[in-house]
Design a protein around this nucleic acid. Sequence first.
DNA 1: CATCATGATGACAGCGCTGTCATTCGTCAA
DNA 2: TTGACGAATGACAGCGCTGTCATCATGATG
Lengths: 348, 348
Amino acid sequence: MICAIIKIMQKNQKITLADVAEAANVSPITVSRALRSPDKVSPKARDRIERAIAQLGYVPNPAARALASGRTDVIGVIIPSVSNNVFAEVMRGMYDALSGSGLTVQLATTGYSPLAEEHLIRVFLTQQPSGLILAGHDQSPAARDLLARANCPIVQVMEVGPKPIDVAVGLSHHDGAFLAARHLIERGYRAPAFLGAQMDPRSQRRLAGFRAAMREAGLAEVTQVVTTPEPSSVSMGCRLFADLIAHHPQIDAVLCNNDDLALGVLFEAQRRNLSIPDRLGICGFNDLEMMEAAQPPITSVQTDRYGMGQLAIAQIRDRLEGRGHPAGTSIDLGFALQIRDSTGGWRG
Amino acid sequence: MICAIIKIMQKNQKITLADVAEAANVSPITVSRALRSPDKVSPKARDRIERAIAQLGYVPNPAARALASGRTDVIGVIIPSVSNNVFAEVMRGMYDALSGSGLTVQLATTGYSPLAEEHLIRVFLTQQPSGLILAGHDQSPAARDLLARANCPIVQVMEVGPKPIDVAVGLSHHDGAFLAARHLIERGYRAPAFLGAQMDPRSQRRLAGFRAAMREAGLAEVTQVVTTPEPSSVSMGCRLFADLIAHHPQIDAVLCNNDDLALGVLFEAQRRNLSIPDRLGICGFNDLEMMEAAQPPITSVQTDRYGMGQLAIAQIRDRLEGRGHPAGTSIDLGFALQIRDSTGGWRG
DNA sequence: CATCATGATGACAGCGCTGTCATTCGTCAA
DNA sequence: TTGACGAATGACAGCGCTGTCATCATGATG
């Protein structure tokens, strides 16, 4: 075996499965099997093969594997944007859940364009992916059509909705915002406003939840809503709030579409010496780590973004192994309103 | 052509290059050429081929392409962690620079482990990538060895250092921190401290820059340094600062390893009613968007993370087209100290 | 001892595309 | 009209691996 290995190394070329086979003195197909389903190869052969692989530093060629098998071991992930820190946590969950699976994530971004999403879905699907992960439920009809025909697990993350294409993992943004808005009302705020940037579908549903709570409380009339299609940021929170308070000084609380905005509102309110939570209540969405650290700590709707990513990958892995939830399942990870000082704190 | 297309569609199978060829009434190889180098195909044929591609919805199979050509159109990107918001901006720059190139990014994370990095480099390199992007200059000797032998462009991002493997795009973290520390001294702070979490090599160099400035000012004796290997976060900033001020109440300024920590320091100082910038100066690193929005706005060392990502991809694209900088080039994107109220503000 | 089931292994072809040549065709100068 | 030349196109083989089926050795069974 040693001399076989030396001979092969001397070729100084890419090490292929055939080289490993030669070194281990078996046929290529046996090496392939040892890699794919080790239990179908005798321990003796397996041992020799493993040793040969280690000594030659063999790494399988995924292109050849994909071509021959028609599968790719690639999970396509289509999200609106990489710089949205909400997705960063989701991605982290995915990468962690991937480990040891031989699967790879292929990330693509739509820039919040449904057409771009449709195109990416089309491209991914022709590539025979092991799975597809999409953000949200608002795929175009054509895209849903493509996806319905797909023969790989499809997970919609971020949100649960009425009709998952296959499996959905997320939460109800409507309900989260509804609960947060109701909390503001319970705390005695009588003129809450909604601040939103980058009004994607999930933001729209949060807004709807806010409105529903206001209607319920008979406050629909006094409610103010300020939104912008521009990306969300802390400075945007400052600007939107400055705009809001300039035109509607009677506002006494703000439900923010996300935590970046909430932090901006906090800063801007501090600049204007509006005392929090007495003069102004602030509530965010997502509960980024910094909400609790802020001064005062900011109330927010906690979402399990890391868990969403993890679970999405886990679902696909389960499916590939014949387990997992059936098509049509929604997994609601829920949310938890984290009540902090910015809305008056916890009153047992 | 129409009836050829109908015939092909009826097979209801994957559309291959051969199908396109049949529909366009040319040989497969001509279709391949039309895709790869359109100028080598007559306009007439090209037109028919393009029409056939559109009507059939043909998408090339990258696995087959990779196998046949020995190239993959994949750029491997190896970074420590996806949840570090510094890398999010870099990634955004990369994705933007990728558009229209047919190239794809394959992201992998090391979890700050040099061994994991070495393994990933090995795996990526055997895959014949179009390029490789690495974070920093601290690859293991074995990894550098592998990389030196690689026959694809390699870009080290985040940092410029003495001996780039191929091309480096970044800045001097030492100098950035040095300048920031000197600024604190110029502002009259006489007992500055350094706060650091997740002390990766770049953080170490920032610390070195801080120390150099302190020595220069003859303040090495009074200097305090608090670090932790744990991940950086706003709450970690609160905790580290609480720890620091408890043991060393004489501290009058803090240079933070990054902006998360700086924000945490701001919040914690506010909780303790330490007035900023009079009782305490705060300086961050990276200049995340929220630094300017904070109350008071926080001084920070601005870095062009988006530009780094963009330039890294642009370098690889240039190289693939035979242009671009020669091996051994370092591109220093520099930094800019953004002086704000948290260190006393700008004094012309 | 013959028969069969079982597990282990191998031969063969082909996945979809592209590199390398060879061939065809039209065009122009001699 | 002929030959030479370049542009356009095609034939062929093979990239590295795996699915399918066939083969072989082994031990269990009656």
